[in-house]
């Protein structure tokens, strides 16, 4: 008999995933007590990138929505800090979830319009949409206008240690949350729909999955997440300008991390993230060279192995850290 043997998988390996996640969470939670400021700052950045990469992976790798415009929501999350914390005086830690909610809220009507563009057009469309947000922020003088604004004042009352620790903990929540969240999502009823969507849209439509609805939810969720991370990034930078907040460079880095690591896998973006920070560390002295190296590497991956580095590792050694594939047993 043929049966989808998900039950058996659920019983064994997820325990390992849960154990690993708990150990990672425990290490991250304790880090502010023993790690130095520099380590924490790099850590925040890494975890933010991990979250953004994993969210883009959900969008492009599973939802089939290749977006070059997620910087719009990084910007909206950042400017939510300016508006609610700096201008309206709310706690910046409250402005973070507000920014995430706002991002998700504007993502919905945006998706209505963007989904009129198919495939490659959608990608450029999202980029144009992000440019619109950049120009809106640049023209909004109350939020600092084109030259940007400093929001240091919002953090003055908060003790520096707590500032660093809180930023790190939130980043940890976002980073691990994105990984575990995507893992849980893919193993849920929704996961089956997403995997079907990734493999063949017409087939999943025929199987009764509303492709449009799934895509809308994926887009809204990934955008809300990007809004949260965007807020966090500028909570640590404390200064934002439209050009920096809504920059295509965010997309460039996210896309390279996911593509090189392995699109459509959970492990890929983690690997890509580690690789990105290593390369940046060692090649930073060569100026723009590391971006050129990254671009060439991404092209190479697309030309040779679509599964990226993790895809290679998985096919060579059969390792799978996050078992989400359903197996068909004959």
């Amino acid at each position: 008999m043929t049966a989808i043997r998900q039950g058996a998988l659920k019983a064994s390996r997820p325990d390992r995933v849960a154990t690993l996640s708990l150990i990672a969470a425990a290490i991250l939670a304790s880090m502010p007590f023993w790690a130095g400021s520099d380590t924490l700052r790099t850590g925040v950045e890494m975890l933010c990138f991990l979250a953004l990469a994993q969210l883009w992976n959900l969008l492009a790798g599973y939802g089939g929505l290749v977006s070059f415009g997620q910087q719009a929501f990084i910007g909206i999350g950042g400017y939510a800090l300016v508006l609610f914390a700096y201008r309206l005086g709310l706690s910046p830690y409250l402005a973070l979830p507000i920014g995430a909610a706002l991002s998700a809220l504007v993502a919905w009507p945006m998706s209505r319009l963007l989904f009129r563009l198919n495939g490659a057009y959608f990608a450029v469309g999202t980029w144009i949409m992000a440019e619109c947000w950049r120009l809106i922020f640049a023209n909004w003088s109350w939020l600092g206008g084109g030259s940007g604004i400093s929001i240091t004042a919002t953090m003055r009352a908060i003790d520096p240690w707590w500032r660093e620790a809180l930023a790190f903990w939130i980043a940890g929540l976002a980073g691990i949350g994105a990984v575990v969240g995507l893992y849980a999502l893919l193993r849920s009823r929704w996961g089956l729909a997403l995997t079907a969507l990734r493999d063949s849209e017409p087939a999943s439509e025929a199987a009764g999955i509303s492709v449009r609805r799934v895509k809308t939810w994926v887009y809204v969720a990934a955008s809300g997440g990007a809004g949260l991370v965007g807020g966090l990034i500028f909570l640590t930078k404390l200064r934002l300008s439209p050009d920096a907040a809504v920059s295509i460079n965010w997309s460039v880095m996210i896309v390279f991390i996911v593509v090189i690591g392995g699109i459509g896998t959970i492990e890929g973006p983690i690997l890509g993230c580690i690789l990105y920070f290593l390369l940046r560390e060692y090649l930073a002295d060569f100026g723009a060279a590391y971006m050129i190296a990254f671009g060439a590497l991404a092209i190479l991956v697309m030309l040779t192995t679509r599964g990226g580095l993790w895809g290679e590792i998985r096919s060579r050694w059969g390792i799978e850290l996050f078992p989400v594939r359903r197996r068909l047993d004959g």
């Binding site: 492009a60 290749v66 070059f68 495939g119 490659a120 990608a123 460039v252 896309v255 390279f256 593509v259 699109i263 100026g287 723009a288 060279a289 971006m291 050129i292 990254f294 671009g295 060439a296 991404a298 092209i299 697309m302 030309l303 679509r306």
Partner: peptide, 21 residues
Amino acid sequence: IMPALLITFGLSVIIQNGLLE
């Protein structure tokens, strides 16, 4: 459509940074 899209995206970054250098 993804490979062609991402290959040209990579080219875009390479050209920009190459010109910058």
